[in-house]
């Protein structure tokens, strides 16, 4: 499976938004092992929005609750520019609202296999 993922995800540019730094580095390392280019990780909506504009990510992984804000504006910007994303949270799905609630959801702690599958499905489906 790792080999397939490596092929599908290799070279993909993935934005990582996560304010818990250890978890952010964990996700970053996982993505790097799959051959992805990691944009970030960043911990605020402002930084994430700037990276979406400047770095043209193919897709994104969003933590829901950042310090005193949520990732909703990031989700809106990604959706508007046609970029698929997935959401990682320690809360149940029923806590999610708005654009965040329509994205695929992974529960914390992150399951590496599921993350790989969801991400490659997202990127495959988004391909024109």
């Amino acid at each position: 499976m790792t080999g397939d993922l490596h092929n599908e995800l290799s070279g993909r540019r993935i934005l990582v938004v996560e304010d818990e730094r250890l978890i952010a580095l964990d996700i970053q390392d996982i993505l790097k092992r799959w051959g992805c280019t990691v944009i970030g990780p960043v911990a605020t909506a402002t930084e994430a929005l700037a990276l979406i504009a400047d770095e043209c990510p193919d897709s994104a992984i969003l933590d829901v609750h950042l310090d005193g804000e949520t990732s909703e504006p990031i989700a809106v910007a990604l959706q508007a520019s046609g970029r698929p994303f997935l959401v990682i949270t320690a809360y149940p799905r029923s806590h999610l609202t708005g654009t965040l609630s329509v994205a695929p959801l992974l529960s914390k702690p992150v399951d590496e296999k599921k993350l790989g599958q969801e991400l490659s499905t997202l990127i495959r489906d988004a391909r024109p």
């Binding site: 996982i30 914390k108 702690p109």
Partner: peptide, 17 residues
């Protein structure tokens, strides 16, 4: 419940890193 999941996330990260 939320806190347990967060701490599990940290433990996963410690193991992985």
């Amino acid at each position: 419940g939320h806190r347990v999941k967060n701490v599990l996330g940290l433990i996963r990260a410690l193991a992985s890193l």
